[in-house]
Design a protein around this nucleic acid. Sequence first.
DNA 1: GCAATGATGGCACAAAGTGTCATAAATAGC
DNA 2: GCTATTTATGACACTTTGTGCCATCATTGC
Lengths: 210, 210
Amino acid sequence: MPLDIGERKRRAIRGELSEVALRLLTDRQFDSLTIDEIAEEAGVSRRTFFRYFTSKEDVVFAFLDQWAVRLGADIIARPADEDPVAAVQNSFRQLTAAYDDRALALVRLVRETPSLQQQERINREHLRISVVNALATRLGLDVERDMRPQILATIAFAPLDAAMFSWFGNRSSEEVGHLLDEALTAFVRERDAMCAAISKKGKARAAAIK
Amino acid sequence: MPLDIGERKRRAIRGELSEVALRLLTDRQFDSLTIDEIAEEAGVSRRTFFRYFTSKEDVVFAFLDQWAVRLGADIIARPADEDPVAAVQNSFRQLTAAYDDRALALVRLVRETPSLQQQERINREHLRISVVNALATRLGLDVERDMRPQILATIAFAPLDAAMFSWFGNRSSEEVGHLLDEALTAFVRERDAMCAAISKKGKARAAAIK
DNA sequence: GCAATGATGGCACAAAGTGTCATAAATAGC
DNA sequence: GCTATTTATGACACTTTGTGCCATCATTGC
């Protein structure tokens, strides 16, 4: 049974509302748009709006809904012998390829709206949690007791974070794909430097951390 | 001139307000506490409250005010030949040692209050940005153009994130210091595994990421 | 057809957060 | 010590968010 009818309808309305909101926002400040306005334009009541979205911020990110789910699935589906960090990064690359026009509108909004920056953080957190769970599955570890998936996910996400930070920050005019490339390059370089330092200093450094 | 008198006073009032708020919250839900109540208890008007805090969430984290600044300074002050990641982690260790009772009350609140979880995220982000800047200073890099400080900061923060995630999540009853130890152990293990994998597979893996 | 279930709209309401202005307090200059 | 100027506060009104509640309407099953 692929999505019962009710769920389909619900998704459609959510999509409709989010589309209306983004359209109204094309040349405006996020704060200046009220929910009453969105609701009226979409032909529903404000009360109904809040049955589909928990907050005004929520509606802007609606179209990223399924990302976390897909990313997790992709990671699990990767070849079992692939390095975990590489698996995450390759899966994520696929996902960013799906960025569409709405993403660009979104970036402008996020840049100039603190409350949307928060929402973006939540979004990324969801993505991260999804990655953590996927890695735990891959490695056969229990997320509740073992911190390794957490650690690996954070490390694998480092380039993504750097790229996003730049994109939503002072380099929003550049291609996100290009920024990600740059971040991955920096990642590889730092990782290799770190490894080189370790193999040289060895136990001395391990002791220093402790 | 160490802090003009006005700034001192301002800090004192902020501290007072935050203390009152935390006291009122000892056995209550965060949402059930109104700003009117805090203001009245502290003997100021609601309008004045909002001159010291930008939001209700803000007041809970007030006592962490200077952490980011201190952490950044600590990192810069570390021996120049110390490994960057180790420098961050050692500095952070010092900071967590300063966790006091208020931190425990805070954990309970954060656990059961979504809006505080957001604030906590923002807090951690500030900490991270502070680390990024400190690392850039240390390495003589420009944060605007070079992503390496970002990458390094994220990697160095991985154990912290893991520890915090557990602490604010399902292991809030344990010592945060202990959780951090555990995270650092996991970090070292994964880092070493990563390095070992690289030195073995070498270029094959670098190509796979690309 | 009819009953039950669920979605919607309208209303009222609490609370957050902001603009504005009058007043009180602190500070500087003389 | 007195006045002028700046700065913090309080009071009030206002917009908006988000929620509880209930009557109404549509959908579905029988």
